[in-house]
Design a protein around this nucleic acid. Structure first.
Lengths: 247, 247
DNA sequence: TCGATTGTCCGTACAGTGTACGGTACAACG
DNA sequence: CGTTGTACCGTACACTGTACGGACAATCGA
């Protein structure tokens, strides 16, 4: 992005872009929706780094610059993508508010968000800015607040507990995505086998007794433990904490 | 990154790179350490997106390709950067293991990591792959395990609780960094003022009663709440949960 | 003291990026 | 049948990471 003075990116324009469903197909039948869907397909398969205006255009059989009549620019395209996939999270009808109690509701939220991040790994790659105030994100927020409503939390606490759970899931999913990526990238199934001798040679002298003992317990040797297990344990601890405050 | 087949990136080479302090200055006095330090300075000030091999080289007064005799490539440079800053986290001597009890220890860890991420915002921008097994990261891990040792947790639980706390901090810090970024970027102090009318117009019809009520409570209107507050509350809840398991 | 070798330095080149600009061509309207 | 608006897009620009090969300095063996 060589533009030294980046485009201003009008926020209210983005809001109408997010909510406007009326997207008349142009001469070639191209719609904003099609642009967003194809961008999501690329990012899902190869990560946000592979998402390129030219590649989206190629998939759609149009010139690169044509995209700019449907979408203001790449950052806005990414926000549209975020809102679009947010709408899918509870599309199958198993809503958080319908679970058996607030604990089950929050567990459901955590698992759904985990799946969501793994299905769309680029969602943990983009650094969030302002919240994306589109229909998908709004509906998701509404559904996820439901299990927390009326159990004795203030409105502020409801928001903060939900945010805490989502933060936990996002960060652990991020690690999982990174791990999947390096594993898929090269034949480093033997990563530890190749690293271990060099590490032992280098570390001789400096000693990390706790790190070695605990690292060994966590997964095979020093390799990072399962992020999903971390997420589930931390979630249960957090839920225990919530239960304590309700009593 | 136009190389369709990315460099293999030998992991054991990286390990020796991480641990080797012997970095003979070349003809121009350039060292690996200097490369890493200047890269950190750029990324600290302008984010990982502004970190460019040419910019690092310019700061050092050498040609771009010269960097490649000290560092295998950009990904490896980033890993070196991560290990280098990890070493600073407890450089002032206030160690987690010296705090008054495991709760205070974990709180100290959380606050130090929060500060760490805000000081080096790019640490929440890079997607982690394999753990960076350098001296800085290893020492940090060792220090952070200390308050959890001997309080009744298994080795695996120690690792998972620590990871959970760090995950919470990372994700909330990420949000804070994003918020800081957009606030610094443009004069959108009036972001909500400009977005609000367009949003009200767009949302007419679809109704999100919970989202509106709770969103209003969380910060000014629908704006996202304070990430640091989310982190602290969630941390306390998580610590309550840990306390429950110990009893 | 003199090659030979080794490792540091770097100019050039290539394939790729987001998007500003200006032009073309088609659909709808008067 | 103009005229107009807008969808489309070719070209250009400044920028990226790094492969390649050459130039220079220092060190070593004889």
């Amino acid at each position: 992005m060589p533009s030294n003075a980046p485009r201003p990116s009008d926020p209210s324009r983005l809001v109408s872009l997010l909510w406007e469903p009326s997207d008349r197909p142009g001469r070639t039948g191209l719609t904003k929706q099609a642009v967003v869907e194809n961008a999501i397909a690329i990012a899902d398969a190869e990560g946000i780094g592979a998402l390129t205006m030219r590649r989206v255009a190629d998939r759609l059989g149009v010139g690169a610059m044509t995209l700019y009549t449907h979408v203001p620019g790449k950052p806005e395209l990414v926000e549209l993508m975020i809102d679009a996939v947010a709408g899918e999270a509870y599309a199958d009808g198993a809503l958080p508010g319908e679970q058996d109690g607030w604990r089950a509701g929050l567990r459901h939220i955590a698992e759904r968000n985990w799946r969501h991040h793994l299905r769309h790994p680029w969602t943990v790659e983009v650094v969030p800015g302002r919240p994306v105030l589109g229909p998908g994100v709004s509906a998701k927020y509404e559904l996820e607040l439901a299990p927390l409503d009326g159990i004795g939390l203030s409105d502020l606490e409801m928001d903060q507990v939900l945010c805490g759970v989502l933060a936990l899931v996002e960060s652990t999913a991020r690690q999982q995505v990174g791990l999947d990526r390096v594993r898929a990238g090269g034949g480093d199934l033997d990563w530890w086998a190749t690293v271990s001798p060099a590490l032992a040679r280098s570390m001789s002298g400096s000693r990390f007794p706790l790190a070695e003992r605990v690292g060994a317990a966590s997964g095979e040797a020093v390799e990072a433990g399962d992020p999903h297990a971390v997420m589930r344990l931390s979630l249960e601890l957090l839920l225990d904490g919530v239960a304590g405050r309700l009593r």
